[in-house]
C-alpha cells in the first residue's frame, strides 16, 4: 500500500504538513467558516430546543428562546410509538446491505484486477454502466419482482435492491484500492504456493481493508438513508425502518411539532453512537468515498 489512510497523514507524517509558523491568520476563511457554522448550527439548535419543549409551548414561545419548562415527554412519546422497532429494523437492513455488498463486491474487485483475459474489463464495464443510474428509476419493476418473489413487506425487499444499486460504486472503489497492491506481493504468495483462494484471503482482503471500510460505509449510508424502497416495498409497522417511520410520523403528529422533532433527533442517535465508537474508520471511510 503506497497510500496512507488520509487521517493518519496528519499525525504519522508531520513532515508533509504545511509549514505552521510564518502564517498570518486567514480572516476571510475564518469568517466564512463562522458563517457556515451559523447555517449548520442554528437549525440543529432549533431542532434540539424544540424537541424538549412542551407541546403547548411550541406555538407560543419563540423558536429561538430556550424552553421555559424543558421536558423529555416528546422523546418518551416517540419511543412509545415504536421508534425502537424502527431502529432495530434499520440496523438489520444497514448491516445486511453492507455485508452483502462487501461479500459480493470484494471477489468481483479481485477478479477484475487480477484476472487474465478480456472478460475482466467487460465485467468492470458491466458494473460501471450502472454507476449513475438512480435506484429510483427502477422502483416499479423492483416492486414487480419483489411482489413475484413473495418478499413484499419484508426487510429483504429493501435489502436486495439497495445492495444491488450500491454495487457499481463499491466495485469501482475496490478495484482502485486493489490495483495498489504491488506485483511483488503476489509473487511472494505464489512462491509460498498459494492458490487464488489463499491469495485472496491472505493478501487481497487484508490489504484492501481501507477500501473495504469505505465500501461498507458507503453501502451503509445508502441503506440508512433510503426512503423510496421502504415506502414502496414495505407496509406493516413491524417492518418499518427509521426513514419511513419519520415520514409517517409527519402525519401522525399533526400539530405536535416537538414530538416529531424529538423523533428526528432520536433518529440521529444510532449514527452518533457509531461515530463515537468507530470515529476513525467512519471518517476515513467517508473520505475514501472521494478517492484520493
Amino acid at each position: 500500500m503506497r497510500r496512507p489512510a488520509p487521517a493518519r497523514a496528519g499525525t504519522a507524517r508531520p513532515a508533509r504538513r504545511r509549514p505552521r509558523a510564518p502564517r498570518r491568520p486567514n480572516w476571510l476563511a475564518g469568517t466564512g467558516a463562522l458563517l457556515w457554522l451559523l447555517v449548520v448550527g442554528l437549525p440543529v439548535y432549533v431542532l434540539l430546543v424544540a424537541s424538549v419543549r412542551p407541546r403547548e409551548g411550541y406555538l407560543s414561545e419563540g423558536p429561538l428562546t430556550p424552553p421555559a419548562d424543558p421536558t423529555l415527554d416528546n422523546y418518551v412519546g416517540a419511543v412509545r410509538n415504536g421508534f425502537l422497532t424502527f431502529v432495530a429494523n434499520t440496523a438489520v437492513v444497514t448491516v445486511a446491505v453492507a455485508a452483502l455488498v462487501v461479500v459480493l463486491a470484494v471477489p468481483v474487485g479481485y477478479a477484475v484486477v487480477r484476472a487474465r483475459g478480456r472478460w475482466a474489463g467487460g465485467v468492470l464495464r458491466f458494473f460501471l454502466l450502472g454507476l449513475a443510474i438512480p435506484a429510483q428509476a427502477v422502483v416499479i419493476p423492483v416492486y414487480l419482482i419483489i411482489r413475484e418473489l413473495g418478499l413484499y413487506d419484508t426487510l429483504a425487499a429493501i435489502i436486495l435492491p439497495t445492495a444491488a444499486f450500491a454495487l457499481p460504486v463499491c466495485v469501482l472503489i475496490l478495484t482502485g484500492s486493489m490495483r495498489d497492491i504491488s506485483e511483488d506481493l503476489y509473487e511472494a504468495m505464489a512462491l509460498d504456493g498459494a492458490g487464488s483462494v489463499r491469495t485472496f484471503l491472505r493478501l487481497v482482503v487484508p490489504l484492501s481493508r481501507p477500501g473495504i471500510a469505505t465500501v461498507a460505509t458507503y453501502a451503509s449510508l445508502q441503506a440508512w438513508n433510503g426512503l423510496l424502497f421502504p415506502l414502496i416495498l414495505t407496509q406493516s409497522r413491524d417492518q418499518r425502518v427509521i426513514t419511513l417511520g419519520l415520514f409517517e410520523f409527519q402525519g401522525q403528529y399533526r400539530v405536535d411539532i416537538p414530538g416529531m422533532l424529538a423523533a428526528v433527533a432520536l433518529s440521529a442517535v444510532p449514527i452518533l453512537i457509531l461515530y463515537l465508537v468507530a470515529r476513525r474508520s467512519l471518517v476515513n471511510g467517508l473520505m475514501g468515498v472521494g478517492g484520493k
Binding site: 445486511a96 453492507a98 452483502l100 461479500v103 413473495g150 429483504a156 435489502i159 482482503v205 487484508p206
Partner: peptide, 25 residues
C-alpha cells in the same frame, strides 16, 4: 481477525435474509 469479522458479517447477513424471507407470508 478482520477476516473472521468479515465472514461473521456475511453469515449474519445471510441469516437475516433467510429469516426475513421466511417471514413473508
Amino acid at each position: 481477525n478482520f477476516k473472521r469479522r468479515a465472514v461473521f458479517a456475511a453469515a449474519t447477513a445471510l441469516a437475516v435474509l433467510a429469516l426475513t424471507g421466511c417471514g413473508a407470508g
